[in-house]
Amino acid sequence: MENTNRQSINNSPLNKPPKKLPNWLLSWESFLFGIAVIIFIVNSIASPYFLNPWSLSDATFNFTEKAIIALPLALVIIVREIDISVASIIALSSTAMGFAAQSGSGVFVICLVGMAVGTLCGMFNGLLVTRLNIPSIVVTIGTMSLFRGITFILLGDQALRNYPESFSYFGQGYVFWVISFEFTCFLVLAALFYVLLQKTNFGRKTYAIGNNPTAAYYSGIDVKKHKLILFTLVGFFCGVASIMLTSRLGSTRPTIAFGWELSIITMVVLGGVSILGGSGTILGVVISVFVMGLVTVGLGLLNVPGIVMSIIIGCMLISVIALPRALKLIKHSLKV
């Protein structure tokens, strides 16, 4: 009888341990998704025009080119490196395309020139980092000024505009109804980078280098070659972004993409990619891209000046970097 009573007490719902929430629900990606939903609702209330399909489609043009660069940059940051010359690479690639257009080149050649210049710039960064062992932040601060300076020397105050009419499709065309060519490219690339990072040996090497470069080297991974590939990949996609941006604007100016570095790095770090390397997901970056896009659109609906937007983006970047450390300090103080 006693055993029966004990069993009934143990099986009582009051004695059962509380169910834990699923891990995915506690993830940074889920938190970001919730923030995105809240911002979407607020924007819908703030403006009756926000939910118009064409308004939403036009809003994607504000972040798509940046988002395309954020995808490979996430991999660079995961391996404990950084590239802050991305906007300057766009400017130099666009300038090269502008001169190619002036010489009468066709759309294929113009695009090839843009991607080639971007790739060479990324490779140059990678060689300086991997062969000369110069910290990437030092290298890319230097090349940020170098590439932008070359652009100003080549263009001065002029703008290059004589692009072929068909070139405008890359930045202004639509694949289906309100779905732009740019946005379609971003979604396809996001899927490809997700597979690359999460499902392939290349992705596993990326995480291994980020967690412990020395251990990765002694396990047989060519760390320098891997980093060189990643920097070159960033340069290539800067070239791709320059094609879309130049096509959308219809001209090349020396100030094109000026100040984009902050927004792109914020997209990556806000997406949960640790600035210290070793962790992060493409899904998080994709969600953070939409969060940043929605914030930008919302501030635009409220007629907030661009300089204030930059301040808000800067605060977001600092907050995301400082938040994990602040939580650790709080946990430590509570334990003590």
Rank of each mutant, 00 (worst) to 15 (best):
E2V: 02
S8C: 01
I9K: 03
P13T: 06
L14A: 10
N15Y: 08
P17Q: 09
P22L: 08
L25Q: 07
S27K: 13
W28K: 11
E29H: 02
F33V: 13
G34W: 08
A46F: 02
P48A: 12
P48C: 14
F50E: 10
L56D: 03
S57K: 13
A59N: 11
A59R: 11
F61L: 08
N62Q: 15
N62A: 14
T64V: 14
A70V: 02
I77R: 05
E81R: 08
I84R: 00
S88D: 06
I90D: 11
A96Q: 07
M97S: 14
F108E: 03
V109E: 05
I110N: 08
C111I: 14
M123T: 05
F124K: 00
G126D: 14
L128E: 09
S136D: 00
M144P: 02
L146A: 14
L146Y: 12
F147I: 01
G149I: 11
T151P: 07
L154Y: 03
L155N: 10
R161M: 13
N162K: 13
F167G: 10
S168G: 06
F170Q: 12
G171I: 05
G171Q: 15
Q172A: 11
F176M: 14
F176C: 06
I179T: 14
S180G: 04
E182K: 13
V188T: 09
L189Y: 01
A190V: 04
L197T: 04
T200W: 05
F202H: 15
F202G: 08
F202L: 15
G203W: 10
R204N: 14
K205M: 11
N212E: 05
A215P: 01
A215C: 08
Y217R: 14
I221N: 06
K224I: 04
I229T: 06
F231E: 04
G235F: 10
F236S: 02
C238W: 02
V240G: 01
S242A: 15
T246F: 03
T246A: 13
L249V: 13
R253T: 13
R253K: 12
I256M: 15
G259R: 05
G259E: 15
E261L: 00
I265L: 13
L270P: 02
L270Y: 05
G272H: 07
G280R: 01
G284Q: 13
V286Y: 03
V286W: 01
M292F: 11
G293M: 10
L294D: 09
L294G: 08
V295R: 09
T296E: 10
T296M: 03
V304H: 09
G306C: 04
M309H: 07
S310I: 00
I311E: 07
I312K: 12
L317V: 06
L323K: 03
I330F: 10
S333L: 02
